[in-house]
Design a protein around this nucleic acid. Structure first.
Lengths: 191, 191
DNA sequence: TACACATGTTAGTAAGAACTAACATTATAC
DNA sequence: GTATAATGTTAGTTCTTACTAACATGTGTA
């Protein structure tokens, strides 16, 4: 966090995610990092290289997968934990996500990395719902449930991110637990 | 759709929403519109002006509000209609939404226009849920429900938009009706 | 035919951005 | 204290881009 390269990368991530690749100048990044523009080029050679290095810094945590190995098999509690962790991951990576949204014109392998996480996450979710169906807790189609859960969670995150200026009286945390409660009740079998 | 200005504006919207304001050149827009760059400047004076004109073209339909005057007061059916119409509005305006995501560095009044729609929509939703609570159909807090419903809907849209490359086996339509069904069951009172 | 008007073409200006070279300055290690 | 490495400074090159000016071409209308 203290080295020159780190300072530059941090500044780059902030600015790229705010404005997008093209709109940010190297001079700007250097200034934000509190460093001479020359130093930037000495360390990263060129702008695009800096971008790639900045990207490599952020990886979706695989720790997340461990979550699925410590399930309680209680629908509401499990979903709440999953949902919360997912929101954490998204929040931690929000800069890179924004960066991606503003720079998707280039770098296809960039795209692949970003899509790897949600698709793996979906598979984990589907397995979970499959197991819950085997246990007779739910009846719905696991795949559909997984996609729906994934999409809505992403929506919660994204709404709170993009529409932060909307003065809603409800915060994300309340929204999450409320959503999970409704979702749980909505898919639970009852006699 | 046939005038020169329209051709240019259309091209501008496509390119701006794909790449963002800064990354697109006037030459590029002119080429995409099948028109000389000079003609572009003759009509719009400068790039920023073209951007504003392009923005003005897209407005969130107020027709949407009429939907809330023809309610059936059947939870699932109403929500499904609302949800579908909302997805339509979002889809119709997806270019402008993307444009906004890539250009939010400037133009604050731009932001206001974009946020007007979701906040009005949320109020309509809250009124609906309030009335449903009065009728004894649901018990949850109307505000929270409205925000949750809004957020998740936006998430469905956005997921299908951004992550279109994810090869999920479930399409948006299925996802919506499934979500509405679950949501309805989740908030309905039952004996 | 003749005129007006929209568009194309071409050349060019001014500003800004990425990037380089050369030299000056500071800090660190021994 | 001196050598070495990292950083700062300054000036400059090249390229791209927004934008202009002047003139040419074409097209419809009276």
């Amino acid at each position: 966090m203290c080295t020159t390269e780190d300072k530059i990368i941090d500044a780059a991530i902030v600015l790229f995610s705010q404005k997008g690749y093209t709109a940010v100048t190297t001079k700007e990044i250097a200034k934000e990092a509190g460093v001479s523009e020359m130093t930037l080029f000495r360390h990263f050679e060129n702008k695009h290289n800096l971008f790639e290095r900045a990207f490599d810094r952020f990886v979706f945590t695989p720790k997340f997968i461990a979550l699925f190995e410590n399930l309680e098999w209680n629908l509401e509690r499990d979903l709440f934990n999953i949902c919360s962790s997912y929101q954490d991951v998204l929040k931690k990576n929000q800069k890179i996500i924004l960066m991606h949204l503003k720079n998707d014109e280039f770098n296809p392998q960039f795209e692949k990395m970003l899509l790897k996480f949600p698709s793996e996450f979906k598979n984990l979710l589907r397995s979970y719902f499959e197991e819950m169906r085997n246990r007779g807790v739910i009846v719905e189609n696991p795949e559909t449930l997984a996609v729906s859960f994934l999409a809505t969670n992403f929506g919660l995150f994204f709404t709170s991110l993009v529409m932060s200026k909307l003065t809603f009286n409800t915060d994300l945390q309340t929204c999450i637990s409320n959503y999970v409660k409704i979702f749980t009740k909505g898919i639970s079998l009852q006699k």
